[in-house]
């Protein structure tokens, strides 16, 4: 004969079992739902304005540019032909967000080591101080090879203009800032047609994890 206490206990255990079964069911359904999402994954968005010309849609792309990298080589839109690339804006003497961006970009660089069609383009926004020789030393010390990661300098206004109008990134001089410049910490993901397919906060590890996943997705989609 069971006393009341034991009976309550048995009822409780039964309830708990029921709860566990419910949870298991919920879990299975959620997993199935997520799996189906993965299968019907939407392609990455295409940023910027678009125009319809006849039957074709014309998307926003990066305007023509010509800069010089750490090896004094000319870097233009042609350099990234048939390549996916990640772009950002920084300067070597910056001690606020740039070192964090470079730490994160180094993660992108290492994660894409086995992907010959993925490159990185870092523009200095302080070309007067960041000369080719200085960028060469900087890249070298960071451990970056110039065929995969270009550190470019050029005419200051051209860099600011391409940042704002092509990459939708902020970059300008501001004497009131501690280091003399304001710029966003954004990383931009460009596809093989030089269209922006993603914008990420280069100072946040989770955002950069997402970028690395999106690079792999973009490579799959563009094959």
């Amino acid at each position: 004969m069971l006393d009341t206490r034991s009976q309550t206990l048995i009822i409780r255990i039964n309830k708990l079992r029921q709860y566990q079964v419910n949870r298991l069911l919920l879990c299975t359904l959620t997993t199935l739902f997520l799996l189906s999402c993965q299968m019907n994954e939407k392609p990455l968005p295409i940023f910027g304005e678009r125009e319809v010309v006849g039957t074709d849609t014309v998307y926003h792309t990066i305007a023509p540019f010509a800069f010089v990298d750490q090896d004094s080589s000319l870097v233009t839109n042609e350099t990234f032909k048939d390549n996916i690339y990640v772009a950002d804006f920084f300067f070597t003497s910056c001690r606020t967000i740039c070192p964090i961006m470079k730490t994160q970009m180094l993660r992108v660089y290492n994660a894409t080591a086995e992907m010959p069609d993925v490159k990185i383009l870092s523009h200095t926004i302080d070309p007067e101080y960041d000369t080719v020789a200085l960028l060469h030393d900087f890249a070298n010390r960071l451990g970056a090879e110039s065929n995969r990661w270009h550190f470019v300098t050029g005419v200051k206004d051209s860099i600011y203009k391409i940042a704002q109008t092509s990459y939708f990134a902020t970059a300008m001089e501001d004497k009131s800032e501690p280091d003399g410049f304001i710029h966003s910490g954004a990383f931009l993901l460009l596809d093989k047609q030089q269209r922006i397919r993603g914008k990420y906060d280069g100072t946040k590890e989770e955002d950069v994890n997402r970028l690395i996943i999106d690079i792999k997705r973009l490579r799959r989609d563009e094959k």
Partner: peptide, 15 residues
């Protein structure tokens, strides 16, 4: 920590 990292490991041969 921006440059020297929160674990004090530095960055490459830069910091």
């Amino acid at each position: 920590s921006n440059c020297h990292q929160s674990d004090g490991s530095g960055l490459g041969r830069l910091y």
